[in-house]
């Protein structure tokens, strides 16, 4: 490791700081986002809430009601066709050549872009 210059070292922040409560020493757990959400779900389930209560889940946007348009998974152009083998959408015969000769697993990577990949659990 090359040595850091004095200014760079002095820019590092050190504790203790005068404005902090010296006795504050919380015990914490880092919960991933998924767990934070499920904790909230459990908490809300214990409450009796009015129908129109504003919760983390009630403000979530609903699924689209308009018909979904299809786009080519490779180029993003209009994708009128769907490859039977992989389910990838494609724009024309030329792109289909790519879809057909795609290396193993790449089709899943493309599908992952629109959450349509196969997830093994």
């Amino acid at each position: 490791m090359s040595s850091l210059s004095d200014t760079v070292v002095s820019a590092a922040i050190n504790r203790p700081l005068s404005f902090k409560n010296p006795k504050y020493n919380p015990s914490r757990r880092h919960k991933p986002h998924r767990q934070l959400v499920s904790d909230e779900q459990k908490r809300l389930a214990t409450l009796t809430l009015p129908v129109d209560a504003v919760t983390y889940f009630s403000v979530e946007a609903y699924p689209p009601l308009r018909p979904q348009k299809h786009y080519c998974d490779i180029t993003g152009l209009k994708g009128h066709y769907k490859a039977p083998s992989s389910g990838l959408r494609f724009a024309n015969a030329e792109v289909y050549q790519v879809v057909r000769t795609m290396a193993q697993g790449v089709d899943q990577q493309y599908l992952e872009l629109r959450n349509a990949n196969v997830v093994l659990k």
């Binding site: 946007a61 609903y62 699924p63 689209p64 009601l65 979904q68 348009k69 872009l113 629109r114 959450n115």
Partner: peptide, 16 residues
């Protein structure tokens, strides 16, 4: 505007 492009099952800002 079309979240389904990215496989997000939610309506877009315009629809909402």
């Amino acid at each position: 505007i079309q979240p389904t492009i990215a496989g997000l099952d939610q309506a877009g800002i315009v629809e909402i």
